[in-house]
Design a protein around this nucleic acid. Structure first.
Lengths: 332, 332
DNA sequence: TTGTAGGCGTTATCAT
DNA sequence: ATGATAACGCCTACAA
């Protein structure tokens, strides 16, 4: 690889001048600029970004930490973030935290040691305190899908509680009163909030909570299967099933087919997230839209604005979920 | 951030010694090692990886280029690759090529300028020649899901042709003779090969090719929908539908439900890839397994061996597909 | 076993 | 507008 020095020699200028035309960080006479550019082309010169980073203390790379790299949810998130940064010549370095506090912490250290200019974090196990400490330590990061009051200005979230409310209200408005609920792991914040929204809707319609109609799943497909089996085995009476995410809803639908149970005639099912396989189910899944791509875009813009001082469209911190009505729910 | 220099001063040794304990690249007396480590801890020292890269000409980062970041297929691939490298302290820089030659080329340049030690490429638009040139230019890379004879030793592939053969043979063995085929874009190599396998199976069973039962889709869900509608509108007679990937199979199944068509009684459907939503469909999709995670792992090991000189398990260049029989196919 | 000193390829601060 | 020249933080012969 040619270096800036060789370019400068070929162009007959100093290497400082070459640097100037690369970054146009200072005026350069048109004639010299042309000479330099010609030299760069001739040598096929590409600036060494590592050296640039060392000298400028900027790496032009952004670290992304998500729980998993697979799965429809994170795929869309990453996709949007990458596109957004790529458009401005920046790179993403990606790591997975696997919902484990130790791995999350270690991943963050990992990304920091790579001199990332900023981090976009989707973490669920690390403590609020840790995050506050990170912020105090001068680490530039933005938090996705989690709200921590002390660093509210760095949080981009979905109103999970309202989403949970909408899902259950949707069932209630269809006339259902016996509504079973399949939650995610209750130690996860979004699971807790979605459930709170569920209770809120029930209260609003004067339906009292029935512990027998609650099941704590794992946000996985199998959790949905087990949930349905559990309710059936317990001989619970319910006409609607609210699932805290689409994976579990899919599992429940699969299990229902195996009973068999006619959907949505004998049971209405609603999911949460609107991941892209949600319309592969049969019947097509009614769900709550989680605008994950937009949230990813917003996180990227937060970084562009706060770290790279670029002017962008206005930032938005809270996104609103909404019902996507398809075929898996029906009036009773 | 503390530098190696500060550590050396605090420990009362030269900075070369500190470097040695960091990389243990030369013997260091136990006593000094302890002193240095104590100093590092006290200062919370973390080596600056950018400076390390510049000095050592190693970035400890691997560039990954895939067509898309979203979608079940690439998610699993990335997930496995990241895990494999992460375990040995290396990180991945990820870019998307969007099946476009220009973007693929640019992405490769992008990753190279980041001084990646190696690239793992899943490209479909860039020419064989370009890749050969890249290899000649001394770029360390391994190619996934594509075979280029001139650089065969860098290719890790699935036997797509055999997979196509297995899918259609499965239908033939179930007694089907009128088999419609939904292909991917024929300019893509895997689509072409899967189709070749299809023809091979037909020939083996003495079934002649029927152009009316061929439809070129786009590897997307909508392609499957359009395919089924196309065949039906053309009044084609067929009892089985072979789709070149699971997305299109899902689309076809959805469309079949809308007709409605009883599955698998009135129509058997098989997909290809065995992506993780393939059992969300109803009936659960019979498909061809594409061991994408294993392929990702193998690519990572290729890099570990050929670039980082690590000893790993033996490398494997060609993976074999196999039929995953679920509920969407049935004897006629 | 340890220290010295010269690079790695840029950026950035001075002069000129 | 352009050119020297010091950083940037670390690695690595080469010496000691």
């Amino acid at each position: 690889m040619a270096t800036i020095y060789e370019v400068s020699r070929l162009a007959g200028v100093s290497l400082a001048t070459v640097s100037r035309v690369i970054n146009n960080t200072a005026p350069v006479r048109e004639a010299t600029r042309v000479k330099v550019e010609a030299a760069m082309n001739e040598l096929g010169y590409r600036p060494n970004s590592v050296a640039q980073s060392l000298a400028s203390n900027r790496s032009n790379s952004i670290g992304i930490l998500v729980s998993e790299l697979s799965g429809p949810f994170y795929g869309e998130l990453l996709s949007r973030i990458e596109a957004e940064f790529r458009a401005v010549g920046k790179h993403v370095i990606i790591a997975a935290g696997h919902s484990d506090a130790e791995m999350e912490r270690e991943s963050i250290e990992f990304l920091r040691s790579r001199n990332c200019d900023a981090l976009i974090l989707h973490v669920e196990s690390v403590s609020d305190n840790y995050l506050r400490g990170l912020a105090d330590g001068g680490c530039a990061f933005v938090l996705i899908n989690r709200y921590v009051r002390a660093i509210a200005e760095r949080c981009i979230t979905l109103d999970n509680r309202h989403g949970g409310y909408l899902a259950t209200r949707h069932m209630l408005q269809l006339g259902h009163r016996e509504i079973a609920y399949v939650s995610g792991p209750m130690w996860k914040n979004d699971a807790k909030e979605r459930y709170a929204g569920h209770l809120e809707a029930l209260a609003e319609f004067g339906v009292s909570e029935n512990k027998a109609l609650f099941f704590e799943g794992d946000f996985q497909e199998t959790g949905g299967v087990r949930a349905l089996q559990h309710f059936l085995a317990a001989d619970a009476s319910f006409s609607a099933l609210v699932c805290a995410n689409d994976e579990m809803a899919s599992g429940a639908i699969t299990a229902a087919h195996d009973i068999p149970l006619e959907l949505p005639d004998q049971l209405s099912v609603i999911g949460f997230d609107n991941v892209n396989f949600s319309h592969y189910t049969y019947p097509k899944l009614t769900t709550i839209d989680y605008p994950i791509a937009e949230i990813g875009q917003m996180a990227a813009r937060w970084v562009l604005k706060n770290v790279y001082s670029q002017t962008t469209t206005e930032l938005k911190a809270i996104f609103e979920p909404r019902v996507i009505e398809r075929d898996s729910t029906q009036k009773i």
